[in-house]
């Protein structure tokens, strides 16, 4: 069983349930992914698949990489990732995988790179409350306050939350409900938000965690 597929976030919309409830969904174009390399216990010590998604012009790909794609008889790809695989199915390099493999999947995990927010303060970055708005405040409205004690330890501890670069980091959203798998359009609709901008690349994985609650 292939555990994950590569895709592209298309954007968000809504889907009505029969009861008339509008469910917010993210549309992800999923595959077709091409198997570029098959890793086997014999050769690599473990089983895995290297998948490629979306074609790229060969002239924009380095020669060594071009050779790597040529081995699988595939066009060069934009998005190349290794995904876990139990080694059960008979898959050869060059084989194509589509959204179909998620047809019976109830929940998925989606990994992407979040939108870059630049240099942000502690209120936005760490959810600090900031200072009071009134009662004689000078300029303490969005400050972080104290960052530690005085003579002891007379230094700032590592990992203290401070302003800095926010976003642009890999993030996984777990246990998103699969609303629909559209085989004709190679798309999957998941409930809720997914990290990254529209047309950002994402990895959609079968949910591993046990569903909490329902």
């Amino acid at each position: 069983m292939v555990d994950a597929l590569l895709g592209k976030k298309v954007g968000m919309t809504g889907v009505y349930t029969e009861a008339g409830e509008l469910v917010p969904v993210t549309v992800i174009r999923l595959g077709p992914c091409v198997v570029i390399q098959v890793k086997t216990p014999k050769k690599d010590g473990y089983s895995a698949l290297q998948l490629g998604f979306e074609d790229r012009k060969p002239k924009n790909v380095s020669k060594p990489l071009r050779g790597h794609y040529a081995k699988a008889n595939a066009a060069p790809k934009r998005f190349l990732r290794e995904v876990s695989w139990d080694g059960e199915d008979d898959l050869q390099p060059g084989a194509a995988l589509t959204a179909e493999i998620f047809a019976d999947q109830k929940r998925v995990d989606v990994t992407g790179v979040t939108k870059g927010r630049g240099f942000q303060g502690v209120v936005k970055r760490h959810g600090f409350a900031g200072g009071p708005k009134t009662h004689g405040q000078g300029n303490h409205h969005r400050t972080g306050g104290s960052i530690g004690q005085s003579a002891a330890p007379s230094r700032v501890f590592k990992g203290v939350k401070m302003p800095g670069r926010m976003g642009g980091a890999r993030q996984t959203i777990r246990n998103l409900d699969v609303v629909r798998v559209d085989k004709e359009r190679d798309a999957i609709l998941v409930r809720g938000q997914v990290p990254g901008p529209n047309s950002g690349y994402v990895v959609v994985r079968r949910a591993t965690a046990k569903a909490s609650g329902s």
């Binding site: 592209k8 298309v10 954007g11 919309t13 809504g14 889907v15 009505y16 549309v27 174009r29 559209d182 359009r185 798309a187 609709l189 529209n198 047309s199």
Partner: peptide, 12 residues
């Protein structure tokens, strides 16, 4: 790509 969303909306 945006057509995909328009299609999904139009269907409903």
């Amino acid at each position: 790509m945006a057509k995909l969303i328009t299609d999904i909306e139009n269907e409903q």
